[in-house]
Simulated scan of single mutants.
Amino acid sequence: MTGEAAAVIDAHVHVVSPDTRRYPLDGGTRDGTDYWSDGGCSAAEVLGTQTANDVRRTVLVQGVGAYGYDCRYLLDTVARYPRRTAAVIAVDMSDPAAAARCLRDHARVPSVTGVRLFAVSGGPQAPDPTWLTDHTSHAVWDVAAEAGLTVVLTAFTRQLPLLRPAIEARPGLRVALDHCAFPDPRARAAGRTAVRDLSDLPGVYLKVTTHLLAGAQAAGEDPADVVDDLAAAFGERRLAWGSDHPQTRTPDYPGMLALARHAIRRRDARARAEILGGTAQRLWFARDIRSPESGA
């Protein structure tokens, strides 16, 4: 990928159906605001926004706040738009054995290229889930590695040291940190220390999202300083931009793209292209589909 106009890929988008009879919301965790309550989060509307802004491909991430671990709408959407979308499903880690079985089944679907492991339910004050340190959860990590999936890790910075052993034990596994693990924007670079501490693990990637960039800007930090800090540790080929649309509504979608380009303005053209699309292409649209049973 040699120029940022080649392909912009949004690595973090949610869809929620207005059809609550077919896709009930009662399985959701209600983490965060009910961003879907205005009915404007359907696949058609969300992907229409992407098209209108010349975003070529979209990584659809299971909206755990809306649906919990019921991935039917996500899977139906990627089946309808197979050329332009990829699915990051989520599995319920409260029962790692069941989660591993569920993931093994879903991994047979070519459009499923990632799995979201959700460690932030209840917010930063809630106790850490036991699966962070429970070895029974390793079955899920193993299935993801065998199937060639990218693990999308939704965790807080304080939890990253607990997760390092699982990542370190699987050097071929790709792990993308959602929202760069929610560092405290008021702490600036110091708040990202736990993230940078994982940069020696070559399979760890970062989602540089609107949530991260807008939070930094609101705290008085130039978003370009955030990107420069993370790129110095990980390199641009391990950074992927994502909007968090439509859960994040401010700025609007064109504003999110503008904020991303503002944040990467100091990088050269090749680096900008990696952050805006190249990294996401490799993580979610170039899956080496292997059998979860054989690992081959």
Rank of each mutant, 00 (worst) to 15 (best):
G220R: 01
T193M: 09
S199F: 11
D184H: 08
A187R: 12
T210G: 12
T209L: 14
D222S: 11
G191P: 11
A181K: 03
A190K: 12
G203E: 02
L212N: 03
G220V: 05
D184M: 02
V195P: 00
T210V: 13
S199R: 09
D197Q: 14
A219R: 07
L177P: 02
L177R: 00
K207D: 06
A189Q: 11
A216Q: 04
E221S: 15
G220Y: 13
L206I: 06
D200W: 12
L213N: 07
P202L: 12
S199T: 04
T209A: 14
H179G: 08
R188K: 14
S199P: 07
V208N: 01
V195L: 04
K207Q: 12
V195M: 01
T193D: 15
R186C: 04
A218L: 15
T209R: 10
H211V: 15
L177C: 03
T210M: 06
L213T: 05
P223Y: 04
L213I: 13
A189H: 08
T210Y: 07
G215C: 10
G215E: 03
T209F: 09
L198C: 08
A194M: 05
D197S: 13
A214E: 15
A194H: 10
G203S: 03
A181N: 08
S199L: 10
P202Q: 13
R196E: 06
A189S: 12
T210Q: 14
F182H: 11
L198A: 02
Q217W: 10
R186G: 03
V208P: 01
H179W: 07
T193G: 14
R196W: 04
G191M: 00
V208R: 00
A187E: 13
A219C: 10
P185L: 00
P202E: 14
V208I: 13
A219H: 09
Y205E: 03
G203H: 12
A181L: 11
D184Y: 11
D222F: 02
L212A: 04
R192K: 11
D222A: 15
E221L: 14
A194Q: 10
L212E: 05
P202W: 13
T210F: 10
G191C: 09
F182D: 08
F182E: 03
T193F: 06
R192V: 01
Q217G: 08
H211E: 10
C180P: 04
E221F: 02
D184I: 03
T193L: 12
A219Q: 05
T193N: 14
G220Q: 07
V195A: 01
Q217R: 15
H211C: 13
R192A: 12
H179V: 04
R196Y: 06
P183S: 10
D184V: 10
T193C: 06
F182L: 09
G191V: 01
L212W: 01
A218R: 15
D197K: 09
L213E: 04
A216F: 08
G215Q: 07
D184S: 13
H179I: 01
D178R: 06
T209S: 15
A219S: 15
P223G: 05
G191T: 02
D197N: 15
A194W: 05
T193I: 13
D197L: 11
V204T: 02
G220N: 10
F182Y: 15
P183D: 05
A189V: 12
H179R: 10
D184N: 15
D184K: 01
C180E: 02
L177W: 02
K207L: 09
P185D: 01
